[in-house]
């Protein structure tokens, strides 16, 4: 409850363009939004540009954000979702996922050494076999750790629909991952 109250106060300050509040929001959500974009467009530079754009759009829209409505995170991810759709609509060709990783920082923890642990590039490849909605559910649920209610709000779906998408996505993924082994 306290967390919710803090969030409400934060958003109210952000509505007045309080730089402190906006900095907090930026730092709290940037990585998540970036990853959400990155896994959908597969290009780190493009993901940076789109993420920047999404936050500017958030600024322009925050005045009309209704605190009583969907959670702020869901609202922000909706902006991200619409921005990506807008981008993809203008880019009819499918993104080439040749896995440019040059600008993605490497985690030097021997990530590839762990048995049954997906490498980052493998995960990126894997989610591309999903439908767009399935991919969004997987990213939001397992990479961003959002709950079903928030995901449903982002995708304009019911929680039941989210569970169904999740099931189908995992079914496809497990076949894909088995094949990759």
């Amino acid at each position: 409850m306290q967390g919710q109250q803090d969030e409400v106060e934060l958003i109210q300050r952000a509505k007045a363009y309080d730089p402190d509040a906006l900095s907090t929001i930026y730092e709290r959500y940037y990585q998540g939004i970036y990853r959400y974009v990155y896994y959908r467009v597969g290009d780190s530079a493009l993901a940076e540009d789109l993420t920047g754009d999404i936050f500017v759009k958030m600024l322009h829209g925050i005045g009309s954000y209704n605190i009583q409505g969907v959670p702020f995170s869901a609202w922000l991810y909706r902006i991200a979702r619409n921005r990506i759709i807008d981008h993809l609509r203008r880019q009819p060709e499918k993104v080439d996922l040749s896995l440019e990783e040059a600008r993605v920082e490497t985690i030097a923890s021997g990530e590839a050494m762990l048995e049954n642990t997906l490498r980052r590039d493998e995960l990126l490849k894997a989610v591309q076999v999903l439908t767009d909605e399935q991919r969004q559910v997987i990213i939001l649920k397992f990479i961003e750790d959002l709950d079903n209610a928030t995901i449903a709000a982002i995708l304009h779906k019911t929680e039941g629909a989210v569970k169904s998408l999740q099931h189908r996505a995992l079914d496809t993924l497990r076949h894909y991952l088995d094949k990759m082994q």
Partner: peptide, 9 residues
């Protein structure tokens, strides 16, 4: 999926 390393911007 959950244990895959996260992309860092």
């Amino acid at each position: 999926i959950r244990t895959a390393p996260k992309v860092q911007v």
